[in-house]
């Protein structure tokens, strides 16, 4: 039979080509540069209107304020790419923080026990979310709407809504107040989560599968991919990251409270969508998410510095998020 020859055989890529591809890969999006332009515009506007905005201290401040959202948003990126949603992350954070603090107070006041309890609780909530979503085929919106309420309720029940004080100095140093290579640890943990996220999503087999499951679940199934396992893993990852965020928060405030960060799931989802993830699945990237959450953090910070009243802050933030999404989409 005749050999079929392609009309365009693509030449093997050169080194500069590859470097360009790497940049494209990390920055990719619908309109890749819009997001970064939006961020820069925001920085310029705030720098011009507030003398306190443009300083290293303030930027570290923004970084610290953004950590919780950024860490969880890494997991949420995986979930949204897989065509799912997790509304329970803020409640999971609260429950994980309580678990960590209580475990430490019960067992040897050991920071390792606290860390394992916090991460484990988060991962367990994620596992339950994932199993209910995939095995019972309940939409994750409903599953996690339920666990949002249940996790928060459990967090309040364990101590009858009282906070649990933490006294372990090592714990504070590792998760909240120390610094690593000169970087405050909350920011270092955020960077670590980002890097792990980038490796997993863009370089690991898991990432390929996540994109396929979200891009077309049927085609993924027909290609021999265990879509349920992949989806569940994304939920576990997100739960564990909520646990990590809980460690950071509780180490910073020297206590775990059951009523913290209510409504933060919306900031997390907004950050991920701002960062270029498609709510219809199959598209998204971690660096976009980082900038998405930086934009939200910068907004929060800048509006406070400008002395905008907090109700007005909410209105402006909401409007800017919608405008930015409209702007970055086609």
């Amino acid at each position: 039979m005749t050999e079929l020859i392609a009309p365009n055989v693509v030449a093997s890529s050169t080194r500069s080509d590859r470097r360009r591809k790497l940049v494209q890969k990390l920055l990719r999006g619908e309109r890749p540069y819009m997001l970064y332009i939006a961020f820069v515009i925001l920085l310029v506007v705030f720098s011009l209107s507030s003398p306190w905005f443009l300083s290293i201290d303030n930027f570290l401040n923004i970084g610290r304020q953004t950590t919780l959202v950024s860490i969880i948003a890494v997991g949420m990126t995986f979930i949204i790419i897989a065509r799912q949603i997790d509304l329970s992350v803020a409640s999971t954070l609260a429950l994980s923080g309580m678990a960590a603090a209580l475990a430490m107070s019960q067992i040897d006041n050991s920071w390792i026990v606290g860390a394992v309890a916090g991460l484990g609780t988060g991962a367990l909530v994620g596992l339950i979310n994932g199993i209910l979503t995939t095995q019972l085929s309940i939409p994750s919106f409903l599953v996690t709407l339920g666990s949002l309420s249940m996790a928060r309720g459990l967090a309040m029940m364990v101590t009858n809504t009282k906070p649990v004080i933490i006294t372990n100095e090592t714990y504070f140093a590792i998760f909240g107040e120390g610094s690593f290579l000169g970087i405050p640890v909350p920011i270092a943990w955020t960077l670590a989560a980002m890097i792990v996220g980038i490796l997993l999503l863009h370089y690991n087999v898991f990432g390929r599968r996540i994109y396929a499951v979200g891009g077309n679940p049927t085609a993924a199934l027909y290609s021999g991919i265990n879509t349920k396992l992949i989806t569940t893993t994304a939920f576990v990852l997100t739960g564990a990251l909520a646990g990590l965020a809980a460690l950071v928060l509780s180490a910073r405030s020297h206590a775990a409270r059951p009523d913290v960060v209510q409504g933060m799931e919306l900031d997390v989802i907004a950050a991920v969508i701002l960062g270029g993830c498609s709510l219809f699945g199959g598209r998204g990237y971690i660096l976009g998410t980082l900038f998405g959450s930086l934009i939200i953090g910068t907004l929060n910070n800048g509006l406070v510095l400008l002395g905008v009243s907090s109700p007005m802050q909410l209105v402006i933030k909401g409007a800017i998020i919608v405008a930015a999404v409209a702007f970055t989409k086609r």
Binding site: N204, G207, A212
Partner: peptide
């Protein structure tokens, strides 16, 4: 997966063949 590249689609059922220790 219509929104993905030819490469992603072609390698989809063979991902383990193109990975070592889980890395692509």
């Amino acid at each position: 997966v219509l929104d993905h590249s030819i490469e992603r689609n072609v390698t989809l059922p063979r991902i383990p063949h193109f990975s070592r220790w889980g890395w692509m």
